[in-house]
Design a protein around this nucleic acid. Structure first.
Lengths: 195, 195
DNA sequence: ATCTTTGTGGCGCTGGGTGCCATTAGTGTG
DNA sequence: CACACTAATGGCACCCAGCGCCACAAAGAT
């Protein structure tokens, strides 16, 4: 495990720290990549080797967390109805230890309230939806490209985003409860007036 | 209604025609605004007065069609269960006369398969979702900011996108049928194994 | 003919993002 | 110690979207 070549001069984590500080101070749009590079003490060109784009900075290591999401889904008891399994997996995926809450909240506020990031995020969501679609497809013995798995992926994202919006609006709200509310609201809605 | 000042030199429609032709020939990303301007025979600067951004060109006059969507929702019979009313309204909103099909298909393919446009589109979808949220809120005597109206908006979009993806994948598919399938799939899904 | 109005479009600039390439700072080998 | 080797760095030039500014063009009104 010997390390050859020039040693790294920075890290994703440090770039994120500097970037989030600047975003908080001046707003996402008013911070340039040059600003962040200067803050980190690194070249602008180097920044683009750590993050594909400015929009990718707030998402950090998201892609790697998807492996955890896959694992959570795989661990769900087989007896559970599929929609319950997916629902609980989404809840667990979005659980954070209390000390990680403030930064997670800050990150999600940035992502969900900055238009440029709202837009960019759909590309990240696609990978998240695919994880669900694959799980649903495997559970049902179908293809992830079939309508139902894709629909469940899309709807799960819809529920999660609805819950997150409510979570950001109310500092005291519990995301798991909001997810429950969104899901039960949806069940009542599609079941019709008196079900 | 006398028209004063210099007469217009182009139109949204002509820009769209030229742009779609170029997009089809070389792909969205490989067409520059300068290319489109040259094709229309107009200055690049002028293009940005007709469309806020390159990403807005494929969407055309979408915002104006939302008034039609509002009207469709308002006309739905009161006796219908809410989810049926919304579902049918979404179907009607996405009905196009046969001769408009090819161009609509091309437009949706561009929007749904070009990453830059997938991303940009969420900003348009927000307005669409808001129309549904407002209708649901009004029907239920709640605020459009409440969880349920927002959730229904998000879920309706999820269903529509699922259906559209299937529609693009299969040239012979009927969008209204795909919307039905997506909705009934969702109902079965949230109802559990034996409902 | 002149004034007013309104669309046009050139110019210059900012900022994200990329390809290219020289440089740097380490490790390993003689 | 000197030499290669390797990998990260970052400067530079460039492309393109988008915007502010402003001069200009083309019409109707007086």
């Amino acid at each position: 495990m010997s390390s050859r070549g020039r040693p790294v001069a920075t890290s994703h984590a440090e770039i994120e720290r500097v970037a989030f500080r600047l975003f908080a101070e001046r707003g996402f749009d008013d911070v340039t990549m040059a600003d962040i590079a200067a803050g980190v003490g690194v070249g602008r060109r180097t920044l683009f080797r750590y993050f594909e784009s400015k929009n990718d900075i707030p998402w950090g290591q998201f892609d790697r967390t998807l492996d955890g999401f896959r694992a959570i889904l795989a661990e769900m008891p087989r007896e559970l109805p599929l929609h319950v399994a997916v629902h609980r997996a989404v809840q667990r995926f979005n659980e954070f230890p209390p000390d990680a809450r403030p930064s997670h909240r800050e990150r999600m506020r940035l992502i969900l309230e900055t238009p440029a990031l709202q837009a960019h995020s759909v590309l990240r969501y696609a990978a998240w939806r695919a994880v669900i679609a694959e799980h649903v497809a495997a559970s049902l013995g179908r293809s992830p490209d079939d309508l139902l798995p894709r629909t469940v992926g899309n709807v799960s994202l819809a529920l999660a985003l609805s819950a997150y919006e409510g979570w950001l609006a109310d500092p005291d709200a519990d995301l798991a409860v909001l997810l429950d509310d969104a899901m039960s609201g949806l069940r009542d809605y599609v079941a019709g007036p008196r079900a």
